[in-house]
Nucleic acid binder design. Structure first.
Length: 635
DNA sequence: ATGCCAGCAA
């Protein structure tokens, strides 16, 4: 590993544990080695220290050179030349620089452990360590979460008197923080005499990583100056903890403060747009990115693709994808998953074959998209083939989400018994997604037996999720088993299962309007309800009959209809219709699955109003157009 | 001739 052309000195081999001259032996009359070596106020004290360093085998670069200069420069000419000597010897250590570079490239590589091995050998050699050496080792420790070695290196930083080097101290801080030792990091941070913007950024980032957004925000607000990275770190933190509104709010604050977003900021804010469905801002950020030349950045493009897909603009996502000069497996996987979610399974499969022909290795995420495509298109055999192929041809071990996709595929195809067997034979413990997929198939294929079997497991795995009980209740209602519908209602009440409030959002002119089922705090609520009544009349003329089977409350049909008419996606679509010019597409984001009544109503509305209505529900997209839906009524 | 902090697909 160590090229002989690099160094004339021999390093000890990796496994060599014999002590070298670096290890002090026996009693030492000189200052003990744990004494800080910064303390000298005369050239003679410096000389003592110098000799101690030589005896203990430590390099001259460990001397604080600024103190050497201060002590010697104003003394006698001999002291001055002595200082020059030290300077020359301390600075002239080209090999340290050489090994540092090697250490750095190892620490930055995919196997930072190699850097630790090299460091161990350096320590046993007589090559001097400097602040750079330690910072590279700490970087490797951070990446490996090697806390105990990190602590030891921190000790070395103190011992060698490097504790006034802010760069190095920041690296130490980062090491503790990225090892999850926020308490130690905070202690260190609090007692640091000097901090710079990097110091603060490290603390902010790590607090966001452990979900302490309030502390991160507090630090952000109290730091003396903020760099673009400070803003980006906090914005990304809000994105990670699923608070996209706060992320976007902060982004606006950042713009107001005159900060220019860079590629990383753009990625973070686009992720927030994707989560929230904030298409307007997403588009604006896209334009800005093009102006700045960010379209060359693969990650920016990947995030743009994801944003457009999640905002329901599959065609624009595809344009971004097609325009990329260089793509990564993430680009391909995102696009494949996008076509799948939008009900374009054939296109997803076509992209996959292009991807492999182009020499890309698909990964676990690629297969999630592919299996989704197969399951949404009912491509049973293709799905089985892909599932078999992922481990056989690509060496990818199926994860729980792939098993979930397979159960979904089989269940949707009506092979409920096979799906059930598949679950029982899975090598991993089935989770609620897996049983939920079987429940979904039981709903589509009206199987009370499988619905009950799925609920038996779901009520243990995810007992407070109301969605599952509602689905089984729908199955009962569909079969006319009203006593079981009532039983489900009692069961939910007894178990304290709370109905998750359904909400839908529509983004208009950069403002995200939120509608919550049954609630009416929107300023235009009166008009929305009036327009709905008008629309309802037209729907009825087209043969719309309210399907109240999804309403679980104990009430009469008329009341149930009123509950249905207050479903958030209906309010959102009415608001969208009245607030946008004819012909405009309406994009709605919903936190739950679309209920069957809303699905039927939205199909008719798309025809009556002659509008494209795109609804993102918690699983997929529904594109309603001309009276039908891209999901082919199979969701 | 070398250093610290922010980001993407499920």
């Amino acid at each position: 590993m160590l090229s002989p052309t690099v160094s004339s000195r021999q390093l000890p081999p990796l496994q060599n544990t014999t002590p070298t001259q670096n290890t002090p032996k026996g009693p030492n009359p000189c200052p003990p080695s744990n004494l800080p070596i910064t303390h000298f106020s005369s050239p003679s004290q410096l000389q003592q220290l110098h000799s101690h360093l030589i005896k203990s085998g430590r390099p001259l670069s460990t001397l604080p050179l600024s103190s050497v200069a201060a002590v010697c420069a104003l003394s006698s000419p001999s002291a001055f030349s002595y200082a020059r000597q030290i300077f020359h010897r301390a600075a002239h250590q080209p090999e340290t620089v050489l090994w540092n570079s090697r250490l750095n490239s190892l620490a930055s590589s995919a196997s930072p452990a190699d850097a630790l091995a090299l460091f161990a050998r350096l320590r046993r050699s007589d090559i001097a360590l400097d602040t750079f050496t330690l910072s590279f080792v700490l970087k490797a420790c951070s990446k490996l979460s090697a806390l105990s070695l990190g602590r030891a290196v921190h000790g070395l930083v103190e011992k060698l008197g490097f504790h006034s080097d802010l760069f190095l101290l920041n690296t130490v801080l980062h090491m503790y923080a990225s090892c999850g030792e926020m308490d130690i990091a905070r202690l260190l941070f609090d007692k640091m005499p000097i901090r710079d913007v990097v110091t603060w950024n490290i603390m902010i980032t790590q607090y966001t990583k452990v979900g302490e957004m309030d502390i991160a925000r507090e630090l952000f607000d109290s730091m003396p100056e903020r760099s673009i990275r400070s803003w980006t770190a906090l914005i990304a933190g809000y994105v990670q903890c699923r608070n996209p509104r706060q992320a976007i709010h902060l982004f606006h604050e950042m713009e107001a403060a005159g900060m220019r977003p860079n590629e990383v900021t753009v990625v973070a804010v686009l992720a927030a747009c994707a989560d929230l469905g904030a298409l307007d801002l997403g588009r604006r950020v896209h334009e800005y990115s093009d102006q700045c030349g960010f379209q060359k950045n693969i990650q920016v493009c990947n995030t743009l693709i994801d944003m457009y897909i999640k905002c329901g603009c599959l065609a624009i996502a595809r344009r971004v994808f097609d325009g990329m000069e260089v793509r990564s497996v993430v680009s391909w996987s995102a696009m494949i998953g996008g076509h799948a979610m939008h009900g374009q399974g054939e296109e997803a499969l076509e992209l996959f074959s292009r991807m492999t022909r182009a020499g890309f290795q698909p990964n676990a995420v690629t297969f999630v998209g592919l299996l989704h495509a197969c399951s949404h298109m009912g491509l049973l055999e293709e799905g089985r083939q892909f599932f078999a192929s992922m481990s056989r041809d690509y060496g990818i071990t199926p994860e729980i989400k792939h098993y979930g996709c397979m159960v979904d595929l089989l269940s949707r195809a009506g092979l409920l018994e096979e799906a059930h067997e598949f679950i029982k034979n899975m090598p991993v413990e089935p989770n609620s997604v897996v049983w939920g997929a079987l429940l979904g198939g039981a709903r589509v294929h009206k199987s009370i037996k499988m619905g009950e079997e799925a609920i038996r497991h779901l009520s243990l795995l995810d007992p407070l999720n109301d969605g599952y009980y509602v689905v089984l209740s729908n199955i009962y209602a569909n079969a006319g088993h009203w006593e079981n519908v009532a039983r489900m209602r009692r069961l939910m009440r007894d178990r304290g299962v709370k109905k998750t409030p359904g909400w839908s959002t529509v983004a208009l002119d950069g403002v995200v309007h939120e509608f919550v089922a049954g609630e009416s705090d929107h300023p235009q609520v009166e008009e929305i309800y009036r327009r709905w009544e008008e629309l309802l009349e037209k729907l009825r003329q087209r043969g719309y009959i309210p399907d109240t089977s999804a309403v679980l409350h104990d009430m009469d049909e008329g009341e149930k209809e009123q509950v249905l008419y207050r479903h958030s996606e209906k309010l959102a679509v009415v608001f969208g219709l009245m607030s946008t010019p004819p012909g405009t597409s309406i994009r709605i984001m919903k936190n739950l699955r679309v209920c069957s009544d809303c699905h039927a109503a939205l199909k008719l509305i798309s025809e009556i109003a002659d509008r494209e209505i795109i609804v993102r529900d918690r699983n997929r997209f529904h594109c309603f157009k001309g009276g039908s839906c891209s999901c082919r009524d199979y969701w």
